[in-house]
Amino acid sequence: MRFQSTDRYIASRDLEVAVNAAVTLQRPLLVKGEPGTGKTVLAQEIAKGLGLPLIEWHIKSTTKAQQGLYEYDAVARLRDGQLGEERARDVANYIIRGKLWEAFTAPTPVVLLIDEIDKADIEFPNDLLLELDRMQFHVYETKETVAAVHRPIVLITSNNEKELPDAFLRRCFFHFIRFPEREVMERIVQAHYPDVRKELAAEALNAFFLLREVDGLKKRPATSELLDWLKLLMAEEMPPEALRTADMKVALPPLHGALLKNEQDVHLLERLAFLHRGRRS
């Protein structure tokens, strides 16, 4: 099983090595990087590339580690018991399996994505240490131990909102997705929109990289924004001339809503454009 770039996902060589190391040694791979550089998509592509099913566990600020293992619905059992239902006798009927359990007991190896682990409470990663290390956990209610049939390929993404504990990091491989350079970006655009007009793509990339260099942007547009924007431009059949970078300083690029998600950023650019216009006249 080897992971490599596909025609839809352009992976750099260091990313390939990191993924293959994690797959071979069966350890989790932690992926960090600017938002919009394809961290979550990576899991889908690994699953597709290796031909394995993907189980996604999206983390929210309220997610508890235990929810990934299992939950015991005591209230339902109590109610059933009150009503004298037969199934209330067996506690196993009220154990709700979590994503990790699902991944551990799947008949084939799976890819497990733990998305945005930094959203959860600061202790969350610590609570999963043993489970991810040994790939097993104990269910106290039924006194059984759930162990992985096949160790899943675990991919963890983080947006750097919280720092992760050392003990957790020690058990992972780590990869930082850097923002792609222009050539790579061209390949990515090619991979997603093979039928895009060459001039349009070139002008759009010019405008995009120029925009990323503007100082003081709160959220610099990333790959996913560029792809959305290009899609819009193609749908609108925008002529490439409309994107000429020389005009960028005078007016915002057309359909900039796809690139700038923050009103402060839009204001900033408008102000820059205004200043520039003033200087020219």
């Binding site: 060589r13 791979l29 990091l169 992972c172 491989f173």
Partner: peptide, 13 residues
């Protein structure tokens, strides 16, 4: 490749 591997293994930040 060894460099990439060593980096993915030993560097966590």
């Amino acid at each position: 490749n060894f460099y990439f591997l060593a980096r993915a293994t030993l560097v966590k930040d």
